[in-house]
């Protein structure tokens, strides 16, 4: 067995899950994120590859945050319905991570699998200006990754992508099965 599980020197497991809020400067984060984007860019050939990489990093953040957020915000209670799950993200997740609720949550008119979380000025993009030649790049792909991981690990597998629309729109496309299940639950 890996010795880190047995040597018992780590105090991580004994720390309280709820703890006083600590803060760092937004400048620190912005510069770190900028280095991340530059690093990713140096290893890819296209905007979509770059967004995929950012999204993957976001997913690792989302996966780490999910359990502790559910515990702190909901006393450990998991959501089972699509709409409640989306509200949990719009309200609780956003407030913990970005200090405010997301601006809007909408459902696509013509598709019951698709939802949008709309943020006029996402924190992640505060200091980012997109070059003209890559105008489709939206670094909120990182946030999309966070949301995708939170949904997927909560039992709502989905694909989340970031787009420039009314500011930044995160487009959430649920797997067919999620919607079928949700409708079946409604019927009961």
């Amino acid at each position: 067995m890996d010795t880190r599980f047995t040597r018992g020197k780590s105090t991580i497991l004994e720390r309280a899950l709820t703890r006083p809020k600590t803060e760092v400067s937004l400048s620190t984060f912005a510069l770190l994120f900028s280095e991340m984007v530059q690093y990713c860019q140096s290893r890819v050939y296209s905007v979509s590859e770059l967004q995929t990489r950012l999204s993957e990093m976001g997913q690792s953040v989302g996966a780490s945050m999910l359990d502790v957020l559910v515990l702190r915000e909901k006393n450990g209670k998991r959501e089972t319905k699509v709409l409640n799950m989306l509200l949990f993200i719009k309200v609780n997740v956003w407030r913990s991570l970005f200090g405010k609720e997301a601006d809007k949550l909408e459902q696509a008119n013509d598709d019951d699998k698709t939802y949008y979380i709309i943020e006029k000025d996402p924190l992640i993009n505060t200091y980012i200006s997109v070059p003209k030649e890559n105008s489709s790049l939206n670094c909120a792909a990182f946030t999309a990754g966070i949301v995708e991981a939170i949904l997927t690990h909560s039992g709502f597998p989905a694909k989340v992508t970031a787009h420039w629309h009314k500011g930044t729109t995160l487009m959430i496309k649920f797997n067919e099965a999620v919607i079928v299940r949700d409708k079946a639950l409604d019927g009961r």
């Binding site: 803060e23 760092v24 400067s25 984060f29 953040v61 913990s96 991570l97 924190l123």
Partner: peptide, 8 residues
């Protein structure tokens, strides 16, 4: 401006 250190 400040932000949540956990996200950082």
């Amino acid at each position: 401006k400040k932000m949540n250190s956990e996200l950082f």
